[in-house]
Write a protein that binds this DNA or RNA. Structure first.
Lengths: 153, 153
DNA sequence: TATAATATCTATAGATTAAATAGACATTGT
DNA sequence: ACAATGTCTATTTAATCTATAGATATTATA
């Protein structure tokens, strides 16, 4: 289950993707529009900046904007930044930890073998889907909804 | 990330799958062998019983045993019982909730559309993998490890 | 029928993590 | 110089996960 924090991050990114990159957006404005607690959003945006997804400008006229094009921002990367990964098992995480607390023989642990398949399945979706894809799919769905409305009138 | 509870459940099931079904295993014995807090394990086994995966016998000579063959127990089912589902998003859960707290138009929510793909990817692995598969893969890995040992001697 | 062995149930405590808030500080445009 | 902004550190609150305690119901068997 992805956390509220990650959902906030994705919403913020979708919003920023709809803005011209030469016009920084205020944290407070983003927070208001997306109904995200301002201080919480601050921390989120900062993480995304530190990892090169966003850029910011301090001072008057400052704010946040995308550092890359939406088609070069994978959803997997965003989830990794905010959740610390998306592995179903700690011991399968990219990071330092090939260690299992409870398991003395990771290489033949059945749970680990199965969850490794799950991880690959998740990864194959999240790493190939970009912010641009997500927005496009949403737009398509909106159009489809409108079309249905038309017919029903 | 799956919880410790689910890992305990899977370990217990692997253990029980290795026992004859006409010899109930004591909770305390299972807890000792798998190093699971006894009272915690009690609750886990009870959930698995209530959902028809395990059977129990009360009184002297009682204990727990599998209610079905390992090849008829999907890992997805176990995860669902103990985690309440494996959807990355609340609003995609099997259960009652096609409601999003934060989202007024689920049908065109980009996050939801993408996570729906993730859910399908997870599901396709977890629902097709059984307890028997998990054990088989573990056994194969153990054999492979032994073989490597042989060569290195 | 008494007793011991067992699962079942209800309640609660403790630990960890997620979410939200507060306020001081640093930077920049005008 | 000043106002507008992001940055940083710390704290609080809430939720969830993990673990524990003890009373109760059921059963085999001596």
């Amino acid at each position: 289950m992805i956390s509220r924090k990650t959902k906030y991050a994705l919403k913020a990114l979708i919003n920023l993707a709809g803005q011209p990159t030469d016009e920084p957006v205020l944290i407070s404005e983003l927070a208001r529009q997306e109904q995200i607690p301002r201080k919480f959003l601050e921390a989120i945006l900062l993480s995304l900046k530190n990892v090169g997804v966003l850029q910011s400008k301090i001072g008057k006229g400052g704010g946040y904007f995308l550092a890359k094009e939406p088609r070069n921002i994978s959803i997997g990367n965003i989830v990794k930044v905010l959740e610390g990964g998306y592995s179903p098992l700690q011991c399968l995480n990219d990071n330092i930890s090939p260690e299992c607390d409870e398991c003395n023989e990771p290489s033949s642990c059945g749970i680990r073998l199965v969850m490794s398949d799950v991880l690959m399945a998740i990864s194959s979706v999240l790493e190939t889907t970009t912010l641009a894809d997500m927005i496009e799919r949403s737009d398509n769905a909106k159009r489809a909804n409108l079309k249905i409305m038309d017919f029903s009138i």
